[in-house]
Design a protein around this nucleic acid. Structure first.
Lengths: 216, 216
DNA sequence: CCACAACCTGACCATCCGGTCAACATATTT
DNA sequence: AAATATGTTGACCGGATGGTCAGGTTGTGG
């Protein structure tokens, strides 16, 4: 909550460190504010307060509000893509899809703000990352679809439309971040406990894996 | 796209009709603008232009931007709740849950803007409809959970955490509205065809129903 | 220790936005 | 047809917001 992101006791803050740390502080604050207020509702003043820096300082590191927002979205996209690593070197759907669900549920828990910013961006027509959707995401999607199709052809899972299966996985896992407030409200206003997160992950995994004809 | 919502050829527009029609025109325009720009990004001028009315006229029917937004969210919530009708008078999960999926997929297709407004509202902490979440939605959720639990107890479906199953259903069905832009982009920029919508619905139904141990 | 570059920030500005209002138009009632 | 209620709208206002800038501070290389 405090903007002071000083990495413990440093007598002399190096020049490069200053830049890196301040950019990080600002980006973290921006991610939170953009997630909670939306792009239009977020103000540079709010982000500055959250970061514990004067507003003018933000404009020193990021020329415009849009540039700052762009960087936030880019960062999230990176995290997003890496969650697929489990998909690739998996022998079958149990490890591949099961692992993917675990990884994405974990991201939903650890990066709820990022997930919301991404959701907002897409819901508003992806004005900033449209090109990424058309290139990187499209390629990524086709790669995973091919992997799923391969498992189907090898008889390792039931024949299910790979594209819509992917959409289902995205939907279910990200839901726990994007609609976290609703879930928390329905949990008597308390955040999900460790146990409840496991329960959620297990339920998703169980239903999906059984749904694609793997494991009972 | 045109704000003229006149219901065909009327010689004399009745007073009551005028009010009703204008409110409808404004609410439709507002729903779209709020969905596409978010609450903070939406401006009364944008909504006015979309509705084809001068801005001051909006304030004649709705005192403030927030009041207008509130009404939009309320309307969506109503539609939302009615989708559960299929749930109630169903003999088992195949009809109950299968029908619910179909109903919600249909809503996602017919009311994509409303779904996005709802998603935005919840993502931003539900500042406007928090009380609804705590009362109406909580009651609704517990009712459906009980129904699911009954089916489990009667051996009509596999034992699955009813709460998380509900969340999964919400997530998957609403995803097709909220992330419609992403899905459209991954469909070569074209909206899903009738056939593709059926395919999506069938895939969700198949995986879920098989996932809860019903039907092959 | 000096000069330069990087960093910091209070004060300021142009623009935009939600909301108001007075004057006017149209329909309904008496 | 006069009086009244309802609907319409251009012009205006106060406040907030993104962004600028001049002048200052702090670290760094020579």
């Amino acid at each position: 909550m405090n903007g002071n992101a000083q990495v413990s006791s440093n007598q002399k803050p190096r020049r490069t460190d200053i830049r890196r740390e301040n950019e990080r502080t600002i980006l973290d604050a921006a991610e939170k504010v953009f997630a909670e207020a939306g792009y239009g509702g977020a103000t540079m003043q709010l982000i500055a307060d959250m970061a514990g820096l004067p507003k003018a300082n933000l404009h020193y590191y990021f020329p415009t509000k849009e540039a700052l927002y762009r960087q936030v979205v880019r960062n999230i996209f990176e995290i997003w893509l890496h969650a697929a690593d489990t998909f690739d070197h998996a022998p079958g759907p149990v490890e591949g899809i099961g692992g993917y669900i675990e990884a994405k549920m974990d991201i939903s828990r650890r990066h709820p703000f990022g997930s919301k910013v991404w959701a907002s961006e897409v819901m508003h027509g992806a004005p900033v990352i449209q090109d990424y959707l058309e290139t990187t995401l499209q390629d990524w999607t086709e790669g995973r679809m091919a992997a799923i199709q391969r498992w189907i052809d090898e008889g390792k899972m039931a024949p299910v439309n790979p594209r819509h299966l992917l959409y289902m996985l995205w939907a279910m896992t990200q839901h726990y971040a994007d609609f976290g407030h609703q879930i928390e409200t329905l949990n008597n206003g308390k955040p999900l406990s460790d146990h409840q997160w496991r329960e959620a992950t297990e339920t998703v995994k169980t239903v999906v894996l059984r749904g694609i004809g793997v494991q009972t």
